[in-house]
Nucleic acid binder design. Structure first.
Length: 364
DNA sequence: AAACTTCTCAACCGCTTGCAT
DNA sequence: TATGCAAGCGGTTGAGAAGTT
């Protein structure tokens, strides 16, 4: 239980600030500095609690606060940082000069989050989620007329629609970017074998030695996923750079990145034997684009690797989302995130295709 | 024009963290 | 080490604005 809020002490005002109160607070802080928030209101002649004064100052009155609409670059930064840091609004705000954590939090909840959901991207994991995709929104005449290619691409996932676990697996693998995508993801003849190979590689990756330190593990997963996916972004990101410089973990990180890379590589040439209990040759034989085999495959991968398939949660990764958003605004902004390097990447490819269907007017 | 709905964002609340004693 | 306090954080609320019917 936390302590009772200080504002409940009698006589202290709550609610919206008046211009007079703002004036008093600004004048006091300009003269004396921020100092002790507990004693500040009394000294400044304000009938407010210190907490209220601090919030008013940090979120509204501070002279270095940037007002107005978030720029595309700011939005892109927020999405990237959120994929790494989660809802650590103050940490995100620390990297966006002039923006407060409250402002960023509000902007995320009212704009970015909704847009990601419309795109079919889980705003928590940043994973493409076909089950979240608002297809009706994509077909709004005013927004966009989908091309035959777009419809063909979406149709490639149609066989998965009756198998939620496979749908989640597809989403997870596409978002993790840990697999080399089929050259044409719209081709279900290639999609299914690719999913199977990716699943096996994921199973192999899960067999890697577990780290006791959970924080290190999540960092490791993040790095491994990113390393497979967009090395340039990882190295360019100061946050990740900082993490990489953690001396104690560095050696182990390298070791595990190598192992993760090996897992990624294994998908280029499917393993010939048994991986984590999976009968690979038998499964490969099953990969035919008809419903009965899909059902069989679905139950096989689900039962053999519940951790991966059932959860539907993927390693957080910034690039698919940011790349998707970026691509949707490509007509007005320069590309970022190394589109060329991502062109062979499943996540980027997927998000680019989906983003083609977005309403670009959101950014105008 | 009025009623209703949706959106925005400033402010609050409860909790955690860090520091001083 | 235990305790209390101040500062900070993230989730939530609610009033007013904007949009829709």
């Amino acid at each position: 239980m936390g302590r009772a809020p200080c504002c409940e002490k009698s006589g202290l005002k709550k609610g919206p600030w008046t211009p007079e109160e703002d004036e008093k607070l600004v004048a006091y802080i300009k003269k004396h500095g921020q100092g002790n928030w507990r004693t500040l209101p009394k000294n400044a002649g304000l009938a407010r609690c210190g907490k209220s004064c601090r919030l008013r100052w940090t979120n509204y009155l501070r002279p270095d606060i940037k007002r107005g609409r978030f720029s595309f670059e700011e939005e892109e930064t927020i999405i990237q940082l959120h994929s790494i840091l989660g809802n650590k609004w103050s940490a995100i705000a620390a990297r966006l000069p002039g923006r407060t954590d409250n402002e960023i939090k509000n902007y995320w909840n009212t704009h970015i989050r909704k847009r990601l959901l419309r795109m079919g991207i889980d705003p928590v994991t940043h994973a493409p989620r076909l089950d979240l995709l608002d297809l009706s929104a994509l077909l709004k005449p005013a927004a966009y007329y989908p091309t035959q290619a777009d419809l063909d691409a979406l149709r490639a996932f149609e066989p998965l629609a009756s198998y939620p676990d496979l749908l989640r697996l597809a989403s997870t693998l596409l978002s993790s970017g840990s697999a080399a995508a089929p050259a044409a993801i719209g081709d279900q003849q290639q999609l299914l074998p690719w999913l199977l190979q990716a699943q096996m590689a994921q199973a192999a990756a899960m067999a890697l030695p577990q780290q006791a330190d959970h924080q290190f593990m999540s960092q490791q997963q993040q790095q491994a996923g990113a390393a497979c996916q967009m090395p340039d972004l990882v190295h360019a990101n100061p946050m990740v750079q900082q993490q990489q410089l953690a001396a104690a973990a560095q050696q182990q990180q390298q070791q595990h990145q190598d192992m993760a890379a090996a897992a990624c590589n294994s998908m280029q040439a499917p393993p010939s034997g048994y991986v984590d209990g999976l009968d690979v040759p038998a499964l490969m034989q099953m990969v035919q684009p008809d419903a009965s085999n899909l059902q069989q495959w679905s139950s096989t991968v689900t039962s053999s690797n519940n951790n991966n398939v059932g959860s539907g949660v993927s390693t957080p990764s910034s690039s698919p989302v940011a790349a998707g958003l970026n691509h949707s605004a490509a007509s007005t902004a320069t590309t970022y995130g190394g589109g060329a390097s991502a062109s062979s990447d499943a996540a980027a490819l997927f998000s680019m295709q989906l983003s083609e269907l977005l309403d670009v007017s959101d950014y105008m």
